[in-house]
Amino acid sequence: MNTRADLEYWIGRVALGDRSAFSDVYSATSAKLFGVILRVLNDRAEAEEVLQEVYLRVWRNAGRYRVNGLSPMTWLITIARNAAVDRKRRRPAVGVVSDTAVLEAQADPGCGPEHAAIAASDSAHLQGCLDELSDGHADAVRGAYLEGETYADLAQRFDVPLNTMRTWLRRSLLTLRECLSR
């Protein structure tokens, strides 16, 4: 399993044009980033295209990544989520895909029992942390970071000012980070 330090090192090497390090970053993160993108877009082919765009952005912008105490995965997931949301905004609305279909599309056929157990534990931990948030805040976090809703859409849905929604999300993420570190 790759560590945070590995990713930080590889991203630094990518900034210098190291193709081998780029391959390492891709191998270590592509499944996770694909899942994030697919969750937003609900379209496997489109998610694959966006994933390519994301790694082009990583290649071009690796020099902008700064080791600042935040996880390099946070930086990569932010790039992936933003790219997916941008793509979703540019396309006409499509039919809703069931959660089961999305999970099946994300499934890794090479996933073994140990990986499945770890993923289930991580998922349960995250769900437990989301349950600690108030219902509105948890729903807003899910909407923003799992379903690709914009802050403006969420503010309208929850009938709060845009800046209030931003504050909700920022505070909720801080609470989640604290909970997940326990």
Score class of each variant (00 low, 15 high):
81 R>M: 00
8 E>G: 08
169 L>R: 02
128 G>W: 01
16 L>D: 13
161 P>C: 11
134 S>G: 14
2 N>M: 07
154 L>H: 05
154 L>A: 01
172 S>Y: 04
100 T>I: 15
96 V>N: 10
59 W>P: 02
54 V>K: 00
65 Y>L: 08
21 A>W: 00
71 S>E: 05
55 Y>K: 11
18 D>W: 06
138 A>F: 04
71 S>H: 04
65 Y>Q: 10
98 S>F: 00
134 S>M: 08
181 S>P: 03
172 S>E: 05
146 L>E: 10
83 A>N: 01
113 P>S: 15
155 A>L: 11
14 V>C: 05
161 P>R: 09
147 E>F: 03
143 G>S: 07
137 H>K: 11
79 I>E: 06
133 L>E: 03
71 S>M: 02
22 F>P: 01
63 G>W: 05
66 R>N: 11
160 V>L: 14
153 D>P: 04
96 V>W: 03
138 A>I: 02
21 A>P: 04
99 D>E: 13
136 G>I: 06
69 G>C: 14
45 A>K: 15
75 W>I: 00
52 Q>E: 11
108 D>M: 08
73 M>V: 03
54 V>I: 04
173 L>S: 01
109 P>A: 00
153 D>G: 14
64 R>H: 09
149 E>H: 11
128 G>S: 06
97 V>W: 04
119 A>K: 10
132 E>R: 11
90 R>C: 13
24 D>G: 08
90 R>P: 03
97 V>P: 03
168 W>L: 06
158 F>R: 11
55 Y>D: 03
107 A>F: 09
181 S>Y: 02
11 I>V: 09
110 G>D: 13
67 V>S: 12
43 D>C: 08
101 A>N: 08
26 Y>S: 15
12 G>C: 13
88 K>S: 12
68 N>M: 12
103 L>W: 04
60 R>Q: 12
16 L>I: 15
141 V>C: 02
2 N>H: 02
59 W>D: 05
83 A>Q: 05
155 A>M: 09
7 L>Y: 03
159 D>F: 12
83 A>K: 09
109 P>K: 02
112 G>N: 13
92 P>V: 15
14 V>E: 03
174 L>I: 09
47 A>E: 08
52 Q>A: 14
56 L>C: 13
168 W>Q: 08
44 R>L: 12
168 W>M: 04
62 A>I: 03
179 C>W: 01
137 H>M: 05
103 L>F: 07
117 A>K: 10
145 Y>G: 01
11 I>S: 06
176 L>F: 04
100 T>P: 02
128 G>Y: 01
38 L>T: 11
1 M>L: 11
8 E>A: 10
160 V>G: 05
174 L>E: 10
95 G>E: 14
108 D>I: 05
66 R>A: 15
42 N>I: 14
177 R>P: 00
5 A>S: 08
23 S>V: 13
100 T>V: 15
158 F>M: 12
17 G>Y: 04
61 N>G: 13
74 T>R: 04
27 S>C: 13
87 R>E: 14
4 R>T: 11
174 L>T: 15
40 V>Q: 01
170 R>W: 02
97 V>A: 07
